[in-house]
Design a binder for these strands. Structure first.
Lengths: 187, 187
DNA sequence: TAGTGTCAAATAACCGGTTGGTTGCATGCT
DNA sequence: AGCATGCAACCAACCGGTTATTTGACACTA
């Protein structure tokens, strides 16, 4: 096998993403990550410094990936919510990583990728309101908060309630999209 | 200092609630809990068995406490959402514990306290729908999921977005209550 | 051979859980 | 009452295993 630092880095990131999604920062095991990546533990420290920094690298990459595959469209929030739901259901790691980030890293400096992505969304929402595409009853940040939390609704409920959730995804999707539509409807 | 098993048990539960809320199950340190409770580590194992069971005890108590202080009212969901938001903002540990539970304990047997509390809510929702108090466009579990996720909206935002959140709580509360109202409004 | 990547092994700290014994209190006997 | 006895509550010290992180030797390549 040829030597390829970039390839090793990438394998490490992928393995770490799976590990962190499953166990969180405190629960993640460095040995497992190295083994899953098919390389040695020391590589983590050579490439990323330590476990926390590795998590930041994983999460920043995830933010960029979501932004790329689920572009934000302020002019059609119901559809955006539906596409977010698709992403969450196709790749549950996305939401788990974000949740762990919120729970376990509230002290660290805000990640630039996240701040920037929020700023862009808020500006687009403000413009859409000025253009009359969106109602003005909620401020941009209120709108964004509601839409995001509704699109996570199914994923953020207690497992016990999940047992009662509709089996077919199309129905869950409809619920979310319909709810966002109602929030935006004129009186 | 008189010996008092009940009192010790209670102090242990309180200390554990704070510790688990802050660090989760994997991150929680048994030694810290014992020290904060002003008693010995061995008491934890005598009273609760192990760390996981201690968490279950803490979480079950929390579920009962929320159920008691924020009674569910299927006939006035907007108000219920508002009261839930109050609870989450007054006692952030509530939601953090629930989130840790969801992330770290998806394998264990469902907690009876949670199952029962869900069952009651779903039945009340179904009755309210039959009585025409609630619209029938969403099923009970869909309705509950939407209401719960909206009431958690502000708390489940990424910290970076939280910086843009409205400073005054009354405004956040209004956003949540208003959103639930719109979901239930007749066409 | 100089430089970079790789890994097994070592290390030091840490953590969940156990053990054996001590302390205070209530009960019942003299 | 005074005292012995049994028991529940409590704790310091310890144990085996695990974890994040470092190191030093080795291998490949240019």
């Amino acid at each position: 096998m040829a030597r390829d630092a970039d390839r090793t880095r990438k394998r490490l990131l992928e393995a770490a993403a799976a590990e962190f999604a499953a166990y969180g920062i405190a629960g993640a095991r460095v040995d497992r990550i190295a083994e899953a990546a098919g390389c040695n533990k020391a590589m983590i420290y050579a490439y990323f410094g330590n476990k926390d920094k590795l998590f930041d690298a994983v999460f920043s990459a995830q933010v960029a990936d979501v932004l790329k595959h689920v572009p934000f469209d302020a002019t059609d929030l119901p559809s955006y919510a539906g596409r977010l739901l698709d992403r969450y259901e196709d790749d549950p790691a996305t939401l788990r990583l974000a949740t762990w980030y919120r729970l376990e890293r509230p002290q660290g400096a805000p990640l630039q990728a996240v701040v920037a992505s929020n700023q862009v969304k808020l500006e687009k929402l403000e413009r859409a309101q000025r253009d009359g595409i969106l109602p003005g009853r909620y401020s941009p940040v209120e709108l964004l908060t509601l839409v995001l939390s509704i699109s996570q609704a199914w994923a953020s409920m207690t497992p016990e309630l999940g047992l009662n959730a509709p089996a077919d995804r199309e129905r869950r999707r409809h619920t979310v999209v319909d709810a966002v539509q109602r929030l935006l409807k004129d009186d």
